[in-house]
Design a protein around this nucleic acid. Structure first.
Lengths: 201, 201, 201, 201
DNA sequence: TATGAATGAGCATTCATTCAT
DNA sequence: GATGAATGAATGCTCATTCAT
């Protein structure tokens, strides 16, 4: 909505974002009340509407703030083992996910509730998969990856594997450490992508 | 809740289940109203409470009815290519998911909202992963699968891959056919699990 | 909205109408609160919405109930003095207006606020003027009324005169009795309509 | 409230008046918001209260500005046909009403809402009727008007006729031109007032 | 004076649940 | 069992008004 024009306004808006995060993490989206967010931020109910038009809007802002470093796959093309860089990316992702776990649950909720958020999610998934697909294609060009894999669907599947593990581990509370998650992911990505004859040699 | 004692009661209960499915698919869980479910079932609001205590309860019943054939991995141990049976399982899963897509979205929603449903989901995920892990172990024993893979975490990851693809395809509306999904899944499971030297030979 | 299906429902609906009239007369439209109407009717706030969708809707119903005998001009064609019947009609109108004065004020208010009500008012005004115009035309045919008068605009003007007097007398509280109002109205209608040469003769 | 002390203040106050008129014409009184008036005037919400204490007050000022030339009946005592001057007055009134139609609707609204405005209206109506009554009395004295008419109530009625026609024509949107309105009014005033035997002679 | 953020009372509306018939 | 009316707590949102800067 409107950006605050004064420093005081900026402070209030920031406080609302912090308060919203707290409340969303505690109560989820549906059960979060605007009044709670405002009171958590130390301001009156009405002030909420000075900066946001709806619960959806402030949630979008909260999620945006929390997801700056979500993006993942980078490939160090000249590295002897390209999977090392990928694994580092996955580690960062898992760690980030772990520290935003409650928020990730809220993201599930809003994605289930609101087609707009679902669209955002789909577009982000696509963007990520395209980047992952480029990595796969690069590996294929370098003769490292199985040339028969169709990069994009493969990317979709391998990305999904990662986020699903994160969901089970940190949202549902499966008992897996980040190390285990990274190891499992890495092993499967490596196996799934690598040209077999290569290692066999 | 109480099972209906009369045939008429059984009819009303059944009508409520059908109505609930319709309404949940149309409006989702949060936005579904008991009054709508009842009117969809052609009975009075009050009658709902004769058979169900809450929206959660009737949703559980609806989901239960819809998920009879969800379970997947069967291994034909003596088949020349064990992945054929796995692929068939995946196809069944995708097809089932496709025809229950709206309901799957409602499942996401309620899992995000309600810890009880989250627990059910976690237990189901574990049960499925245990079965998948057994398959992997069996393949390892037969010398088909990479012996270095830890069966359970691997199973978790590969299962997640499948359900994530289904979610993106049928809930978010990514443009992928069941054939593509099965092919992609099969290729990756095969690559990920297979002992490399085996094929290389 | 929905008509009540049971006798109890009919009772509640009727009580709401009575309560609404009381509240509208006391507070006007804008300042009337749904909660007050309900409590005046002796039922819970929510019950209001079982029978009406909005304040506008219940006001329309209240006004409809109050305006059954508003319609006016009847001409006794064969009477020696046709203005006697007209005067009787005006008397009824003024008396009715007097006993609904507060409600008439609310009608002004809602007509100013809501184009829909304004439309209703316009259509009613037209219908009334058409009937008055027929009376004027009949008088012209009988040679009683000035043939140069255009019946419809004249009807509009003379009708307006009546309702305006009523408004000033009963809403604004001008000090005029019904007798005076009728006398004034009658004298002016008579003068305005009558063919001069007639009486002059 | 306080008159502005500086030129800048005068400008702001003037802008608020213009903005208020715009907003009142667009939204009516109840739905007009102080914030909108201020923003329409290009100043901050708070500045409104430097010059006006309430919506009522600024509306009163807006109406005052708009109604300078509303007053009507002037009698050219020595004119051969005194109704010509009256008709000219009515024409001015209708033209003025037409160009302030939206504001006249707001006047209806506030008169319905606020007893103070109702009082003002009543007093203005009385003042006008007194002047009209003087005209009638003068005509009676000159032997032009029916001596049996009681000047004041007659004035009330004939004034009401005029304003009612204006309301129907310009607020409710009845299809009548100013010429028609003037002609109708003139004909009826003439008929209603004139001593019959006079014309008959 | 001007600003625009902050306030918070006030009200409409929804809907799960109960219960008399 | 079925009905559907009644309940009333819960909450989102508005907006006139104040006030610190």
């Amino acid at each position: 909505m409107t950006e605050p024009a004064t420093a005081r306004g900026a402070r209030t808006r920031a406080a609302l974002l912090v308060g919203a995060r707290t409340v969303f993490e505690r109560d989820g989206f549906t059960d979060a009340r605007i009044a709670d967010i405002a009171s958590e931020a130390g301001c009156a109910t009405g002030s909420f509407y000075t900066y946001f038009t709806s619960k959806e809007e402030i949630l979008a802002a909260v999620l945006y703030d929390a997801q700056h470093d979500v993006m993942r796959p980078t490939l160090d093309v000249d590295a002897p083992d390209p999977f090392v860089a990928l694994a580092e990316g996955h580690r960062r992702y898992f760690e980030n996910y772990a520290s935003n776990a409650r928020l990730m649950l809220v993201l599930e909720e809003i994605a289930a509730l609101d087609p707009t958020f679902r669209d955002v999610r789909r577009r982000r998934g696509e963007a990520l998969a395209r980047r992952t697909a480029e990595v796969i294609a690069a590996l294929q060009e370098r003769g490292v990856a199985d040339p028969e894999l169709d990069p994009y669907p493969t990317a979709r599947a391998l990305d999904g594997l990662v986020s699903h593990l994160a969901y089970y581990a940190f949202v549902l509370g499966e008992d897996m450490s980040v190390d285990e998650l990274v190891a499992t992911t890495n092993r499967i990505w490596r196996n799934a992508l690598t040209l077999k004859s290569l290692e066999a040699s």
